[in-house]
Design a protein around this nucleic acid. Structure first.
Lengths: 343, 343
DNA sequence: CGGCTCTGTGCTAACGTTAGCACTACTGGT
DNA sequence: ACCAGTAGTGCTAACGTTAGCACAGAGCCG
């Protein structure tokens, strides 16, 4: 690797002069600057950020810690962050945890060792205490999920309200056997969505056994497929399904279409998230739309401001985005009548 | 930030002793090691990789440079690389170029300054010459697309053969007005897919005007939607469509289902890639399946070996994965008869 | 013409870590 | 009692860059 010293020796000047010329220091003559820049370009010199960091310069790397980049929520977030960060000179480091707190800890250790400027994290269900310690030593912000022992900087969506609306839509159509398929209750999002489901039932004046919750692993296509198979072949088949994650929705839709279940005649479905295929699935999937992109942009801008302004304004900051129900054709009243959009 | 010096002062030993204790040097007594580790843990010490790198240690960051993480091809690649790299102690840096060579160059400059250990890149159509220079100074490997002026380390798929098969399937069913929708010819992949399309027509003994190519931006859902709209409303409506990118396929499917086009009776379609929704779209989408995951894993393992083994075995290395045609219900002979799978 | 400012450059230390060498205090053999 | 060997630790330099200070030479004023 070419260093400032190599350039200095070649031109017969000192390293300081080279450094200053490259930094466009006003004390250096234009002629010297020109010669230095020429040589630097010739020799393929690229400044060493590691060395700069040792002199107190801060890292230009922001880390994103998420469960799985293949989930479109997270790839949307990654894209939005990357785009915004890049324009401010930051690079994005990607760490996948697969919802495993040990992997999460491993990543956070590496990120700390690499002295990243900040961490944007979708925390696992119950982060290891060392993870919490490492995060607290860095500028960080939580995304989607919110763990109380981490800071109160958080960008998320109103999961409870989103599921309340989704469920209320079914209740309004007269369903009395509704199954909710969602992630584990340990996850803040899982708990919130379940609360939303339950309160919609309560508010609809339904009996306790009107709603069943089928909780499974956080983000599993398989869990969706299998649960559908089990529910449809068991006794007391529900007349409606509300879903609580994107991956789950993908699995459910696939299985329903494989089994040829008539939607919404035999079964009503409300999905979660909005993927390209959801609009052309069966009669069109009625689903919970979430402004993930806007949330990610908001988070990126907040973090940039946080990093650019010197005083560490670590004050609590929370942004909650609302969800909305996208009405298509996958819900109807349980007696077979069709009334999509009658929320 | 806590340094080895802080620990040394607290324990009344030298920095060297602390460093050696943490490195588990056999010359240090067990008792000292214990005390040092205790103190390090107490004080929340995290080694500074920037400083280590200055002493010749290599970076543990591998960069992935791709057009857009939201494209499922790339998110699959990112996931697979991340998973494999993480288990070997590497972190993944994510850079999105949006197929813009200037953005590509900006990223490569940053990556070089950050002294990443290696770069895995899906190069843009015509990389800037400085980009080539920067890449050549680093261990790197190309993915999917292959630019001749970069090294000959490349992992990709046989695009030409994949499109030849897709097109041949339609030709065999008797189609004589086939449109190909794909990315620009400047892209190595775009050119290869177009070649495949054309040679299938030639081999099928079709006249020159049997196939039309509609080329557009590399990876655009909109281009898919718009081209379908234009083709269907114009004269000489094709009886079959072959698609040459995932995003294009998403746009086309959306538009076809919005317009209520009867597939395969009115129009046959062969897609590109295989997304969850493709199996439940209309009659099921016949599509080109590509072993992206296997390719990414292969690439990750190759790069790991390249980085772990000292001698820079930069010898040419090329791996080509084959594609396969996944037969579902979206193709039939143009006279209205249905014969999916009669390739 | 001595002392001043101004311009352009060099020297040196420092950042945190590690490796080579040096040093001290034992142990055991003769 | 003396020397060799060894275990345990400290000192110092080096990595590439930058900032503070020093310094040489030129031009200018009194």
């Amino acid at each position: 690797m070419i260093t400032t010293r190599d350039i200095a020796e070649r031109l017969g000047v000192s390293v300081s002069t080279v450094g200053r010329a490259l930094a466009d220091d006003p004390r250096i003559s234009e002629e010297t600057k020109f010669r230095v820049r020429q040589a630097a370009s010739d020799m393929g010199y690229v400044g060493n950020r590691a060395a700069r960091m040792m002199r107190g310069a801060s890292s230009n790397v922001v880390a994103l810690v998420i469960p799985d980049i293949r989930n479109s929520f997270y790839s949307t977030i990654a894209h939005e962050l990357s785009k915004n960060m890049e324009s401010e000179g930051f690079q994005l480091m990607l760490s996948e945890t697969d919802d495993d707190r040990t992997a999460e800890l491993r990543h956070l250790r590496e990120l700390s060792a690499n002295r990243v400027a900040a961490v944007i994290i979708v925390p696992s269900a119950r982060p290891h205490s060392e993870s919490v310690k490492l995060l607290r030593a860095l500028p960080h912000v939580q995304l989607l999920r919110r763990h109380p022992s981490l800071g109160s900087q958080w960008f998320g969506v109103d999961d409870e309200e989103a599921l309340r609306r989704a469920t209320a839509h079914l209740v309004a159509q007269g369903h009395t056997r509704i199954s909710y398929l969602g992630g584990p209750e340990e996850l803040p999002t899982g708990a919130a969505r379940l609360r939303g489901f339950r309160s919609a039932l309560r508010e609809g004046g339904l009996p306790d056994d009107a709603g069943r919750a089928e909780l499974g692993p956080p983000s599993s296509v398989d869990h969706g497929r299998e649960t559908v198979r089990r529910l449809l072949s068991g006794p007391d088949v529900p007349t409606a399904l509300v879903l609580g994650s994107i991956q789950l929705t993908l699995g459910v839709l696939e299985e329903l279409s494989r089994q040829g279940v008539k939607v919404p005649q035999e079964l009503s479905v409300v999905g979660f998230g909005d993927e390209p295929g959801f609009s052309w699935w069966g009669p069109g999937l009625t689903t919970v739309g979430l402004p993930i992109q806007e949330m990610a942009t908001g988070c990126a801008l907040w973090m940039i401001r946080r990093l650019k302004t010197e005083p560490g304004n670590d004050g609590p900051y929370t942004a909650v985005s609302p969800g909305s129900l996208i009405l298509r054709g996958s819900t109807a009243s349980p007696d077979g009548g069709s009334s999509p959009g009658s929320a």
